[in-house]
Amino acid sequence: MKEFIKVKDLYFKYEEEDGQESDFALRGIDLTINKGEFVAVVGHNGSGKSTLAKHFNAIYLPTTGDVTVDGMNTKDDDRVFDIRKKVGLVLQNPDNQIVAGVVEEDVAFGCENLGVPPAEIRHRVDEALKAVDMYEYRQHSPDKLSGGQKQRVAIAGIIAMEPECIVLDEPTAMLDPRGRDEVMETITKLNRENGITIILITHYMEEAVLADRVVMVDQGRIFLDGTPREVFSRVELLKQHRLDVPQATELNYKLRGCGFDVPDSVLSEEECIEAIMKLIKG
């Protein structure tokens, strides 16, 4: 697999307005994200996961250390727009990232900034809206949409810029369960079908299960990095870092703790049921 984003020994400190020294929000992050991967970055509120997300497209710049995107250093002023063209960022609050008063015009906003010719923008906007399944709403006002729909419009606005990677900073935190499903379905599809690299920042473990790889962050450091199966087998460690595991995983973990012959880790209801059936039948 080809390396895409490389984070090297990243330390980051917020600049306080009153000149006060604050603690480091990130302390020594080393992380490589490959092309086409679906990575979930998990951690509790204040763990530094959102701060890390904003380093991937040069919104924040490292205090020390480096972040490179496809070989470009985010500190290089001349490459900022090239980086943001490759790495799009979707924020938590869907209301605050929609610029225009009509869905399709908002989706076009990024392309317009890039100076894409009008006919090409039209084409990309239509394709992007179809990709997030919002095409029939293209003439609507964003105010009349549900949270999940707004968030999908925000994602379409990024897709239209044809990025190689989309970073989503807690995109489902403000949504109801249906909106959450819609967004997760969209993200998974973009990764599987369009080959877009996805970095999902979340504290919902049900969402992290869908990723290829889970990175657990706390106190500005990486504590775990592996497949969901590996990470979710560490139930105690996750709990220590103020995180949950899906209930199916926890049930399996408890059974395993009692000495029953179940897998190291299960991720879904189906796997959990299969394991229990095996115990009972076997």
């Binding site: 015009e105 317009e112 900034n113």
Partner: peptide, 19 residues
């Protein structure tokens, strides 16, 4: 919003096209 606009490469009116 300012951050979202930055993420989408907004840089004033220069070099902008319209759909």
């Amino acid at each position: 919003l300012a951050m979202a606009m930055e993420c989408r490469c907004y840089n004033g009116g220069k070099g902008r096209t319209r759909m």
